[in-house]
Amino acid sequence: MRSIAALGAAILGMLAAVGRIAIFAAETLSHLVRPPFYPREFGHALLTIGYFSLPVVGLTTVFTGGALALQIFAGGARFSAEAVVPQIVAIGMVRELGPVLVGLMIAARVTSSIAAEIATMKVTEQIDALVTLSTDPMKYLTAPRVLAATLVMPVLVGIGDAIGIFGGYLVGTGRLGFNPATYMTNTINFLEWHDIVSSLTKGAVFGFLAALMGCYYGMTSGRGAQGVGRATKQAVVAASVLILAANFLLTELFFAA
C-alpha cells in the first residue's frame, strides 16, 4: 500500500514537473517574439554554443563513423554484404547517430554550463539584481540561449554528419580496401533529401531542448553550492532523456511507413 502511494506521488511529481517545464517553454517562446531583444547576448550564445562546440562534435563523430564502418563491414561479411558499408554509414550517421551524438554532447557541454551559470546567478542574487535593473531574466538570459541553440544545432549536426561519414570513408578506404571514388559516389547517391532534412530537424529540436533544460533548472535552482550542483545534474539528465525520447518520436514521424 505504502509503495503504491510512493509511486503515485512520484508520478504526480513528474507530471507537475512536465507541466512547469511546458509553461517555461511557452514563456520562452513568447519572449522570442516580443521586444526588447538582446542581440549581444544572442551573439555570445551563438559563439559559445556553436563555434566552441566544433572540436567536440568533430571528435565524437569521426570516431563513431570509423567504428561504424568497421562494424558494418564485419557484420555484412556474414552474408557477403560488405559492399554496403558506404550506404549504411551514411544512413546511420545522418538519420540517427549524427543528431543523437551531437545532441548528447551538447547536453553534456552546453546544458551543464548554462544550468551552472544561471543557477550561480540565481544563488548569488544576480537574477534578482537583473529584475531590479528592469531587465527580464527570461528575455536577457533564457531567450538568447534557447534561440541560439535552436539555430546553431542544425549546423553542428550537419557538420557532425559530414565528419562522421568522413570517418567511415577514412576507415573504408584505408583499412577495408574500398575505392575512394566509389565510396564517395555510393554515399552521395544513396542519401536522400529526406534523410538530411530529418537530421537537421532533429538538430534544431535537440538544441532547443538542451538549452531549455539548462535554463529551466538554472532558474529554478535551490540555494547554495548544493543547489547549483543539483540543478546542473538534473538539467543534463533531463536534456539527455528528452533528446532520446524526442529522437524516437521524430524518427517515427519521418520514417514510419
Binding site: T124, E125, A129, L133, S134
Partner: peptide, 25 residues
C-alpha cells in the same frame, strides 16, 4: 538596490555593471 552580496554580474566589466541601466532599455 544594493544587494547584501553585491550581486554583480560576473560576465560584465565593472563599469558595465555600474552602467547596466544606462546601456539598455
Amino acid at each position: 538596490m544594493l544587494f547584501q552580496g553585491a550581486a554583480l554580474f560576473d560576465s560584465l566589466h565593472v563599469w558595465q555593471n555600474v552602467a547596466f541601466r544606462l546601456l539598455r532599455g
